[in-house]
Amino acid sequence: MQIPMRNKLQNPGILHRIENFLPKLVVIPTIAVAAVFIYGFIGWTTYISFTDSRLLPKYELVGFHQYVRLFTNFNLFPPESRWSVAVVNLLIFSVLFIVLCIIIGLLLAIFLDQRIRGEGFFRTIYLYPMALSFIVTGAAWRWILNPDLGIERLIQQLGFGDFTFRWLVDSNMAIYTIVIAAVWQSSGFVLALFLAGLRGIDDSIIKAAKVDGASLPRIYLRIVIPSLRPVFLSAVIILLHISIKSFDLVMVLTRGGPGFSTDMPATFMYAFAFNRGSLAFGAASAVIMFLAVMAIIIPYLYSELRGTRNAR
């Protein structure tokens, strides 16, 4: 019964206190950093959005002036102001991006889930674009969609002499080139989500349905896909989140052009805040973006966290 320290710590001394405080001490820097650089900065940007800052920040409040500017002539169909173009583009982009990614991802996941030989090989191929930056992806697609030497030339050389494909420089169609590149980059990721979901489904449910005589397509339509609902939700949230933040692809593919026909909120914000010396206006658009993301993410996170807590 040799306990050397037995009497040393009869009453909680200073060492003891420090030890109790240690975990907090260790995370305090992170908490401080988050408080300042996340929450403080959100507040700061919001403040700027209520000023009339142009090239340099000014701190006299002017009320909702910038927001009013954002939403004057705010007409979505047809879009009139530059901001409404950005919003409409975001709508078009996110709907197409999400729908296409989910269709491609889900179908490929289902096909990959058929005990495929070389599944790992296929999966590796489908997912590699996720490892690339949007800038690299954009550079590649910018070349592929090149109005003279890209797909247009390829199809023409295949014998369709008068084929034209000039979406990249067509202000009505350029937004779709961004969709094409984004879908190429992200659908593999959605596939991975769905594949994980499929692997999580209890095999015996499918066996039971088989015994009941259901055909394979029917099993998928009626049993498997409905049980993937949480995966659909996650996928939509993540893709929506990517959409709202999308900046890189637009910059490299079209720079928001031709004109500002492919502007999105993220590029809009950057253009006004950094290139056109309109800090407050840019800040106001950033605040709108932030609010949009939070409106989506907070309910989602809340239900996710609550879900896991209940499960325990």
Binding site: I3, R6, K8, L9, Q10, N11, P12, H16
Partner: peptide, 8 residues
């Protein structure tokens, strides 16, 4: 108020 390690 004794820490686990000191309770023997």
């Amino acid at each position: 108020n004794v820490k686990p390690k000191d309770r023997d």
